[in-house]
Design a protein around this nucleic acid. Structure first.
Length: 111
DNA sequence: CCCTTGACTTAGA
DNA sequence: GTCTAAGCCAAGG
């Protein structure tokens, strides 16, 4: 398995109308701490059919510069993601990945 | 192997 | 809120 494959799989797990941070994607892909590399894998995501627009920076901030950033925001808004003060409402649209490689299973939901 | 780059993240002032 | 510094990891020259 390649590095990018793990990343792309994780990104594809994000459903429409939901968003996740680079760090979350990296963690869900089994590469915690590789948040920066997530963006690397997303550079060619568009050509691979990856929902790259659902990946944001910490706090729901769009880090993509230029038109790409505007495009990302527009795409998300079309998916129903609400933006507040230039940031996506991750409290409402933040996607929570299923428990992956968690020793204590702290990531599991109870109710 | 060494150094630089990058759509990152957290902590401090 | 804005800026700086340090930590982080993989790809490319």
């Amino acid at each position: 398995m390649g590095f990018f494959e793990d990343i792309r799989k994780a990104v594809c797990r994000i459903p429409m109308g939901k968003v996740a941070t680079y760090g979350d994607v990296a963690r869900a892909a089994g590469h915690a701490g590789a948040a920066r590399q997530v963006s690397w894998a997303l550079r060619n995501a568009d050509a691979l059919g990856i929902p790259w627009q659902r990946v944001l920076g910490s706090g729901g901030r769009i880090l993509l510069p230029g038109r790409a950033g505007l495009l990302q925001r527009r795409l998300l808004q079309e998916e129903g993601v609400r933006f507040i003060g230039g940031r996506a409402d991750i409290a409402k649209h933040g996607h929570r990945f299923k428990q992956s490689a968690r020793s204590d299973g702290s990531g599991r939901s109870v109710g």
